[in-house]
Amino acid sequence: MDVIYDWFRQLYIDHGINLTIVYDRFDRNRMLGGLWTTIKLSLTCLALSVLIGLVGAWLQGARSVLLRAVVQGYIQFFRNTPPLVQMYFFFFALGSLMPQVRNEFGFTQPMIDNYTWAIISLSFFAGAFNVEIFRSGIEAVPKSTVEAAESLGYTRLQSYIHVVLPLAFRVCLPALNNNLVNLVKTTTLAYAIAVPEMLYVANQIWSDAVNVPEMMTFLLFAYVALVGILVWVMRKWEQSMALPGYGR
């Protein structure tokens, strides 16, 4: 490993390309921590936002007017406000109204920390879009198919899970992919409430080492790779779900 570190140190001396995240132990650990936080944050929000989308789309078809209104209100609120503003609102405004807990130092602090608020905000933000994405898929399922399921004795929930969703999923996967890719990129906004994800860490490193171009380039490539992995997984999933004669 030392050979690699020395090579990057020499790269800085010879060519002025300063990748402290390779040869400086402190910066390397910070960046690895940032990468891990980004991955954790992304995976958690991906899962939660899909779940919210599924439940939301199901509730959109509910008989109760109240339930439908609640879902509609949720979508309007989260889709029409900028995620950065939501993040600030949750963390600073709503966060201070939450119950306080006593910490290990004997002082009270708000119960929900910044990382959790980031998860909540990002999941609900992407979830609002997912509801509409799933609705587009559900509405593409022929009415006769749903009626066929009903005539076989399926309840509304059963036909949603076993008939409508599997078909709807295949229709809306491209749109869902788009939204999930966006979600991974939106995790960078968590830097505003001090969640140490990659942008937050990179910002601090380039302030210390004054290597803005290097860190910017690294960030871009890191996100290309992260999103690339996500897109690849989604593509595999799409292929494994392909039905002959349905969709592609």
Partner: peptide, 20 residues
């Protein structure tokens, strides 16, 4: 370390007990 972008955010966080 919990770092924010501006002093107003930091002072709010400090008063809310998010840091000591």
């Amino acid at each position: 370390l919990i770092a924010f972008t501006g002093t107003a955010e930091v002072l709010t966080a400090l008063q809310q007990g998010r840091c000591q």
